[in-house]
Amino acid sequence: MMKVKGGDLDKLGLLFERYNRPLFSFFYRLTSESSLSEDLVQSVFERMLKYRSTYSGNGAFTTWMFSIARNAHIDHYRKNKRYNDIEDFDEERIGEAPPEYAEMDERTRRKKLLELALNKLDPEKKEVVILSRYEGLKYTEIAEIQEVSESAVKVRMFRAMKELKDIVNTLSEEYSDE
């Protein structure tokens, strides 16, 4: 990135080749939309070029990159007025089981439940789970991205996992009764 900052824009191609998949996965897990995730990846690299002069080289590049990614995601949903709009999980309003749920084998059902549960977490907790569990970032790096303390991230992670467990159990019981 320091070479991109110095004017060697071709080097951004190397960064794209290396990080486009992790970024796409990050956005896909947040949005469940392929086309939107691709647009957001493009937006991240545009922002890297636009704000390249602000890159200091201190700390991990991935921390800087995911900070940009997080902002791109927040900006997108602010434009659409949907960020933080996720309602708290309400056991009384679970809704019907997804289509074909009854025909799914045990493994596919479990996967579906996990996906649904992950999507019911609030954005901050969901981000922590994705960045820690899937992108392999350290809590200290996630703390920098979310601009909170490391202990706050750890607490979020624990509570997100506990909530996930509870949501999965509730959904599983409700859907099996249908």
């Binding site: 796409f24 691709e38 493009q42 996967k111 569990r133």
Partner: peptide, 26 residues
Amino acid sequence: QLHDELDVIVTPAPSPDMSTGFYAML
């Protein structure tokens, strides 16, 4: 156990359009 299980959630690959769009922008 749930933390280990999260591996089962996989993501699709992006389309080649993403790469084409990036290089055009560059």
